[in-house]
Simulated assay, not measured.
Amino acid sequence: MQNTEQLSSYHSMLDTYNTQDLVNAFVDDQANAVQAVQAAAASLAAAVDAAVPRIRAGGRLLYFGAGTSGRLAMLDCVELNPTFSWDKSRAVARLAGGDDAMNEAAEGAEDDEAAGATELRALAPTANDVVILVAASGRTPYVVAALQAARAAGALTIGIVNNPGSVIDALAEIPVVLDTGAEVISGSTRLKAGTAQKIALNSLSSAIMVRLHKVYGNLMVDMRATNNKLVRRALRLTVAASGATRTAAREALEACGYEIKTAIVVLCCRIDPGEARLRLAQAEGSVGSVVQSGKA
């Protein structure tokens, strides 16, 4: 039996708990999710190192999943654009059952092998693409079929699963096994298995973006300032990165179309926005490289 399907020996009388003990049982069990991801950290690092050269060469991040796993994968995919200004065409998620399954469970769709393979092939994957396949069981037919099609196309396959020894664990080029074990509510992988998947997905995609120079120091310098809150955040980030006054930072941001990276280079190197963009392009978007060379 899969670890995620086993009966928990710790909470066999769960339905008799008082409310505080009930909440504590769920919250305390989440610590195991963190431990599972920590145990898989080396695999996540290997996935980042394998993915980055492909993405730099023009590849895409392609996410495939079903049910809770697929929704978490889609969430990670969608957030790359506002957080890192990542081109939407280079981060694509496919969920078993289609977009409607995001809002309404379509449990039967996970068994549709043909759909998994067809939807993967429809994206015309290349050897530079990175396919992230998420399935708690590690054997979801829709996801397995997408994995096989991705491998046939030569794409990098990263499998994120919660059961060691599963089909996806065996077939993925880089398996990331999050062995979270039995759930407080037996078999409900929306609990700590899902939590571990979210941590792993966040860590994987964020580390890739850091390696692609979307972050300067620990500052989110490539985000999109699309509302008032984010405009204020852009100003704070520009001040923190450049040491400029708020007035100077605001003027630079306005001159640069609220491109934070460009504004930082303008302020630190005392050049115009056009030259700042050129230098950033030559440095593959690395603010640190441009600033250091500008001070030399």
Rank of each mutant, 00 (worst) to 15 (best):
M1Q: 06
M1H: 05
M1Y: 04
Q2I: 13
N3K: 08
T4R: 00
H11A: 12
S12Y: 10
L14H: 02
D15K: 07
T16Y: 06
N18H: 02
N24E: 13
N24L: 08
V27R: 12
D29W: 04
D29H: 14
Q30L: 12
V34N: 09
Q35I: 03
Q38E: 15
A40P: 03
A41W: 09
S43F: 10
A45C: 07
V48W: 01
A51K: 04
P53W: 07
P53T: 09
A57E: 08
G58R: 12
Y63P: 05
A66D: 06
T68Q: 03
T68A: 07
A73M: 12
C77E: 01
E79Q: 15
E79R: 15
N81K: 15
N81E: 02
P82Q: 10
T83M: 02
S85G: 07
K88N: 08
S89Y: 05
S89D: 09
R90C: 03
R90K: 14
A91N: 09
A93Y: 11
L95E: 02
A96F: 09
G98C: 09
G98L: 10
D99H: 14
D100F: 14
E104F: 12
D111L: 14
E113T: 13
E113D: 10
A115E: 02
A115M: 10
G116L: 11
G116V: 09
T118F: 11
L120P: 01
A122W: 10
A122E: 13
L123E: 13
A124E: 11
V131Q: 06
I132L: 15
L133I: 07
A135T: 10
A136V: 11
V143K: 04
A146C: 01
Q148E: 15
A149N: 05
R151E: 15
A152T: 08
A152E: 14
A153L: 08
T157Y: 11
N163G: 06
P164K: 01
P164R: 10
G165F: 03
A170N: 09
A170G: 04
L171M: 11
A172H: 11
I174N: 07
P175N: 12
P175L: 10
A182K: 11
S188Q: 10
T189C: 05
T189P: 02
L191H: 10
K192C: 06
A193N: 05
G194R: 04
Q197Y: 04
K198N: 05
A200V: 12
L212C: 15
H213K: 11
V215S: 01
V215A: 03
N218H: 12
L219D: 01
D222C: 08
D222A: 14
R224W: 03
R224N: 01
A225S: 00
A225W: 01
T226S: 14
L230H: 06
V231G: 01
V231I: 14
T238D: 05
V239R: 11
A240M: 13
A240C: 03
A240I: 08
A241F: 03
S242W: 01
S242K: 06
G243Q: 12
A244D: 06
A244F: 08
A248H: 11
E254V: 14
A255M: 06
A255S: 13
G257T: 07
L267E: 02
C268T: 03
P273C: 06
G274T: 12
R279V: 05
A281G: 08
V287L: 02
G294C: 14
K295Q: 13
